[in-house]
Amino acid sequence: MAFEGLSERLQSALSKLRGKGKVSESDVKAAMREVRLALLEADVNFKVVKDFVARVSERAVGQEVMKSLTPGQQVIKVVNEELTQLMGGQQSKLDLSSKPSVIMMVGLQGAGKTTTTGKLAHHLKKQNKHPLLVAGDVYRPAAIRQLEVLGDQIGLPVFSLGDQENPVEIAERGVAQAKEEGNDVVLIDTAGRLHVDETMMDELKAIREKVEPDEILLVVDAMTGQDAVNVAESFHQEMALTGVVLTKLDGDTRGGAALSVKSVTDCPVKFAGMGEKVDALEPFHPERMASRILGMGDVLTLIEKA
């Protein structure tokens, strides 16, 4: 299978650098070929890979590595650092300064918006917030019902006007109700849509203009392939995203989409979905993701070995 042996290949390529007093440009080149493969097989977009490898190569053959006593070790460190840096370096939090703070969830069909709406509400409730969930998907069969069941599970109210009302109207009246009832956070679920569907994208823009969200989060399936950049780019262009939630990371995907999305939108990944249950949401850790994308269980051990 595709993934098997990659980690080993990577290790062997890097081990050639191990203990070398001097690293030649061709040594670095060989190692970078393996890094390139690792990234591509992890679904990092091929253009992003190209830029990344070029940048790392430059640093790797540069002074800091060549002059060091352990050049092999330095190359791996550079790869890991650059990858972590690309994903935002450190953890990024939600902006909840407004009263109420409005959070809008957007994304492709089936990405995990509704589930994440429930999870995020649960997460905020534990921080003593009082979220209101707004059922803004009037298209998908039983989407409202799905959110209501989730609301029940976490013991939080769900605002709905049924599926015969306009989503813009629903969002607006949901926020108005939150103000009246004193909810400090409003989470708006929206229907899944294709980034190339103009009518549906216009609907999102109309909602944004009406309720002026503090956070617009793009929900992205971590298993997404090369198309992740097109999707993220379009949603960002239309909506001015403030962050990304990566879902379904509890599987065995390498999740290269994270890197692709981050590099085209420059929006931080704020949360990771780690399961289907309402408590399966975690803050996102760029450094862990870096090791995962490279297929190196633990980059640090590798560095020690190098």
């Binding site: 299978m1 679904d43 492709l108 997404t224 090369q226």
Partner: peptide, 11 residues
């Protein structure tokens, strides 16, 4: 299979 899926679809 979701056609937007990447290499994980093989698994």
């Amino acid at each position: 299979l979701d056609s937007t899926t990447g290499q994980n679809a093989l698994q």
